[in-house]
Design a binder for these strands. Sequence first.
RNA 1: GGCCCCGUGGCGGAACUGGUAGACGCACCGGACUUAAAAUCCGUUGACCCGAAAGGGUCGUGUCUGUUCGACUCAGACCGGGGCCA
Length: 741
Amino acid sequence: MKAELKLLGLSIDWSREFATCDPDYYHQQQKLFLKFYEAGFVYRSEADVNWDPVDMTVLANEQVIDGKGWRSGAPVERRKLSQWFFKITDFADELLQGLDTLDRWPEKVRTMQRNWIGRSEGLKFQFALSNGTGLDVFTTRPDTLFGASFVALSPEHPLALELALKDDKLAAFIEECRHVGTAEADIEKAEKKGCDTGLTAAHPFDPDWKLPVMVANFVLMGYGTGAIFGCPAHDQRDLDFARKYDLPVTPVVVPSDADPKTFAVAAEAYTGPGRLANSRFLDGMTVEEGKAEVAARLEKDGIGQRTVNYRLRDWLVSRQRPWGCPIPMIHCPTCGVMPVPESALPVLLPEKINFNVKGNPLDADIDWKTSVCPGCGEAAVRDTDTLDTFADSSWYFARFTNPHADEPVDKAAADYWLPVDQYIGGIEHAILHLLYARYFTRAMCKLGLVSVPEPFAGLFTQGMVCHETYKNAAGEWVTPDDIEKRDGKAFLIGTDTEVAIGGSEKMSKSKKNVIAPETIIADYGADTIRWFMLSDTPPERDIEWTNAGAEGCWRFVNRIYRLCTESEGLPAPGTPVTATDDASTALRQAAHKAIAAVTDHLEHLRFNSAVAQLYTLANAVGSADKADGAARREALEAIVLLCAPMMPHLAEECWKELGHTKLVAETPWPKHDPALTASDSVTLAIQVNGKRRGEITMPKDADSKLVEAAALAEDAVIRALEGKAPKKVIVVPNRIVNIVA
RNA sequence: GGCCCCGUGGCGGAACUGGUAGACGCACCGGACUUAAAAUCCGUUGACCCGAAAGGGUCGUGUCUGUUCGACUCAGACCGGGGCCA
């Protein structure tokens, strides 16, 4: 990896290099963990967690994609375990509001994070149950309270579990629910099912109105209070459920164009705006007024409270893996959970790890895990979990500012460098890494370790490099290095054995569709591959690797080199350009326009457009035989300097060939001369009734009357008008003339 | 289901706040140089039609409507692809 980066000639300060698995790094991370612990940002709790049966570890919610572990792809299971959590939910609101300050982040990523945090305002209130207890529910639609027809508990709700002890049918139902995946999407897609508890709940505004209390598979324990009231007319899940169990469906919100007396809900719940109906004192109110009225009344009665609820869950960071950063905690039978004193850090991983054990090798390593309690000095055991490796990448950028500091973060260095000006990563990090890193930075900021609340001022999400995939008859992936193409079909090199050509996918080792950079660099050189990767596709899109494209870039590299070495009659470096003939002036204009355009494109990361400008300039130089030597030198030097960020090796070579003794790297970026980028004549298109009929060349900023007269005098215009008099002439200065006939 | 993004030649893609659609590259074809080839250089290339030619015309940015003197660009509906949340 490092060798590849060096071969590509990337400008990286290797003196700051570290690996997150270095004991020094995880030593600092353990200190950071303990600071978080002291500050109350970390807690331990028993909870239903996502268990990856292949990786044999728990995963955070963010790391479960479509019900599967993000690394292993195995369907996750639910387990109840005692685990460490970062209290990221305490930061939910500021993480959400902070998104508004990130104006150099893609809107898409900000939206994804907003959705993930999932803030919703609503009302928490209590139902009085027939067994004499109270049940808290959360709703975002208190306005629909008179449309309620049941109350539902999550299968994991404590009350459900308690009732199941005496109710076999309910216990069996809860057991059945456990077999559905933990992902919300799975639960959503599953058929809505429920089981009656036998209890009833009194409507908060009418003690005589009793609602059945059910346990339902679509109610999430992790959202709100794990209990809801169901209003079938205005929530699709509730409606599906009500239809199945034949519960009443009473519309209480009526759209403005419908009659309250006849409005009915059939197969689709109505979630739009409207006026309340069938709702006693709420009748006639809007949805918003209804929400406010119900909340105010229940708050006054002391059984309700307006609350904000988040979808975001706390970040589960314990991992049952023998690599990474050991959690610096000790479990003492007497003192409980004790942090390892800072003087006893780092807690190093064992030197030898025995993987031939069931479960976590650290847990099986008696020598390693046996310790003494820092409180009472008696025998105790270490926490055998390691931190989620996403923690490692959540603060490394702060460590980079001074990677050798004795503390996790050197404040002065961090203040100098942070926030990161331009962060680049794949869109797949939109929620995981980018949310965790934002959380860490805010937590560190609260602790005074850094001064900035946000880690990355600018974010750019780049695309992937893709390539065709190949499979042999046995269905195994075949690397492109072993393929040759004949008549659009692929064969193993030197044989008639055909292989199937699959779709183009992100280059990955598992699919073997990787072109190793070393090979390409050996064939074409590092600059060709750099140029190729930038040349056609905008960086945010996926790029399709084709050899044909690379060949074209190789030609350009050679062309630039030839232009610089074979041009004749160039004056010495630094010679002022004095010629004013047309050819020289035209070349100078081309050079300065390119300087202005390339500079602008590069600043906006539009590398493909910058490349196109350089081709245009190279074409201009190539055909400027008549231009003065000094003008040609100026244009060539512009090409070399403008190419340098993309093709540094070529640029230095050409710069030397052009007679310079300093490096391009030491040379200032070129500046364009505005006098040369503004031409004094412009070509305007002439339209008749919106159709282009010709063009005229006029002095820049010519008087509209003159432009109009010139346009009307054009042969093509006269022909198109067919003798009709123009009704109206629109002159857009320096751009276009449209004649309406 | 909701929200968001995307749809332009054979291909990758240009086109700033509505103002000459297809820049630039790839590929293809033709030509020059060469005994020949490679390399290099020059030229054509959105579709269709008229013309011997010069040239001229019609259509054209997923589909259909609309706004406008003028729409790849704005609005609405739809089709297709992708993403996020369900």
